[in-house]
């Protein structure tokens, strides 16, 4: 009545015992991520030019521009004296701000565990984003959209006027 096929199906399941287990031992070991995975954002503060394009294109309204003291930040060329602040409670990790940034100073890292106890801790101002950039989660330098442009180094000479 269905006994022979069911026994065949059980045979396939028992044949799975020879494979190794597929469990990820998170949080003892890190999760496997690919090269292009979109994690937390990081900012190279010296190269930011304050153009506000990342604020205009964000679909979730998570980026706001904050006024920064020019002496503390050591900007190379920033006319308005502004830099982006990211609210990770609203960010959807879509990657549009990283693509549009003209001097290529916003990057994705591979850090995926940023949960805290208070919601206000998730608002990262530009100095905290700069600290993420200098930490051990080094950002990747993926090729930019044009094949001819070279991938930007962290400290190019920009704004030569």
């Amino acid at each position: 009545m269905g006994i022979k096929e069911t026994l065949k199906g059980i045979g396939y399941s028992i044949g799975n015992l020879k494979n190794k287990p597929a469990t990820y031992l998170y949080p003892d070991k890190p999760l496997p991520v690919q090269e292009k995975s979109r994690g937390m954002l990081s900012l190279d503060l010296e190269g930011c030019i304050g153009c506000e394009l990342c604020q205009k294109i964000c679909p979730a309204d998570a980026i706001t521009m904050m006024k920064i003291d020019q002496n503390k930040a050591h900007f190379k060329a920033n006319a308005r004296g502004e830099a982006p602040a990211v609210d990770f409670a609203k960010c959807i990790f879509c990657g549009l701000c990283v693509d549009i940034c003209p001097p290529n100073v916003l990057h994705h890292t591979h850090k995926y565990d940023i949960s805290t106890n208070r919601k206000d801790d998730l608002f990262y101002d530009p100095f905290r984003l700069n600290e993420v950039y200098n930490e051990e989660y080094k950002p990747l330098n993926l090729k930019s959209r044009n094949e001819e442009e070279k991938p930007s180094e962290p400290s190019t000479e920009q704004g030569k006027n």
């Binding site: 597929a22 690919q34 090269e35 292009k36 995975s37 979109r38 990790f93 990657g95 693509d99």
Partner: peptide, 30 residues
Amino acid sequence: RERELLMDIVEKISGGRLAPMYLRVGGTEY
């Protein structure tokens, strides 16, 4: 289990599993 193998390939191409964000006007992103 079979869908996981294909999902790994989509993540290698585009960077996201359920929300790939890979297409742009005129072609693709990478």
